[in-house]
Design a protein around this nucleic acid. Structure first.
Lengths: 113, 113
DNA sequence: GGGTTGCGTAAGTCATGACTTACGGTAAGT
DNA sequence: ACTTACCGTAAGTCATGACTTACGCAACCC
């Protein structure tokens, strides 16, 4: 169920980004990568879950555009995607800004009656 | 599992906000309230789910600080909380900005060797 | 006061997704 | 070449949470 808002600009949408960040472990991975890029094993070493679990999380984060991969020998170095959070930020900004403007408009309107 | 980042400033944390926005129905409700405040039944009329389901979603959104309630007779008018998204925005900004700074630092460092 | 409208809560069902272990495949070390 | 690290995928288990119907309660209408 998508509830596709008739959106003229048809932006990519924040859905996969929010879905990816909804999991605490994935948020922690993102914070870890915020410090510095790291290999899968290096990341997994800092968490109480198995390495495959980390791999699966990285896949979700990658699909959401939040992280990037670079092969280095047999290692896979994951890094934070510089503008991975942009879709989510845009969605938040637009929704809340529009709402605040609408409220201000209404308040002005009522004050003038 | 929280993976509490040793956070000196001890901000409220974006967890409940992200968890609330993770559900598509709840995002749609938020977008609906971005247009104008509305009662529970009015909101439910626009969705293919039952009214109690909407009530439950509104509870989650309220606990996350994303919406506010105002009683009006027997009706409960829900509205978008003006700065409900602030914790999430702050988290995103801090994480990504820090990461970009760290990257820039590293790039400069490597360039100077 | 009796009926009606508007909500929230309780209890139960069912799907999603976060984890596990097991396995296969590629690149580096000796 | 053989072994060893490093990683992704497959398959199965189990908890979480999004939904349903049924119910109880407070505020308006006649």
């Amino acid at each position: 169920m998508t509830y596709a808002t008739p959106n003229a600009t048809s932006a990519p949408g924040p859905d996969p980004v929010i879905a990816a960040l909804a999991d605490p472990t994935r948020r922690a991975i993102v914070e870890r990568l915020g410090t510095a890029p790291a290999s899968v094993s290096a990341i997994a070493a800092g968490f109480p879950v198995s390495r495959p679990a980390i791999s699966q999380h990285l896949r979700v984060l990658g699909d959401a555009g939040l992280v990037t991969v670079r092969a280095e020998g047999t290692r896979r170095i994951y890094a934070l995607a510089p503008d991975g959070a942009a879709p989510l930020r845009d969605w938040l900004d637009r929704l809340w800004d529009d709402a605040l403007h609408a409220f201000a408009e209404k308040a002005r309107e009522e004050a003038s009656t």
